[in-house]
Amino acid sequence: MTAATGADEAPTPPTSWTVRTRTRISRIVPQGQALPDRQPAYMSSWIYVFGVLTIAALLVVIATGVLLAIGGVAWWHVSPAGHFVNSLHLWSVELFFAFMVIHLWGKFWMAAWRGNRALTWMTGVLAFLGSIGTAFTGYLSQSNFDSQWISTQAKDGLNAVGVGAYFNVLNPGQMLVWHVTLLPLLIGLIVAIHLVLVRRHGIVPPLEAEAADANLADEGGAR
């Protein structure tokens, strides 16, 4: 096997799947925009901070959730360290939702779906709805009287819409697996797509931004 360094070697044919994949990946976001070091002037506003605050809170949620999964139910119920991590998990979720809703308000009032950003908006919607489901299964996984109360209150509504046989809130094992594997994977995937789309289209400008400064090509362009 020879190294592909010779200048006279034939170039890899464009039909190669590695070339096609590499080209496709390189075109997902404009060059230099994956981790940009410069941003438009209109981004100098506190309202643009709440997206990254939401991500930061989500990272704390995931890290403390991993610790809770390692320690187990008895650990988070009886040990001081377990109580502390359990509280960190709860309060980071509270902050996650507060930051996410303020981010949502900010983006709604600047019509953040402008400029081919509809998919960015919709993945944000999905992340919000998925987060509600993840938080709900988290409340059901506390293994205390609160989780019992919530599950008995929720079962009738879920049975009424016909999903009770597949999503049984009275089954703590099923709810725990939804909470620690399926829904976090879903949220992680949606958030990753959301972030890639934000980098692909750039941050949304405020309504009063100059058209030339706003990157608002409504026709054509990448979606």
């Binding site: 925009q33 940009p36 410069r38 941003q39 438009p40 002037a41 100098s44 506190w46 750039g202 400064d213």
Partner: peptide, 14 residues
Amino acid sequence: FPRHGGRGRRGGDS
């Protein structure tokens, strides 16, 4: 929003 002193206007061209 606080701005860095002495670095001029940030961005605006991206």
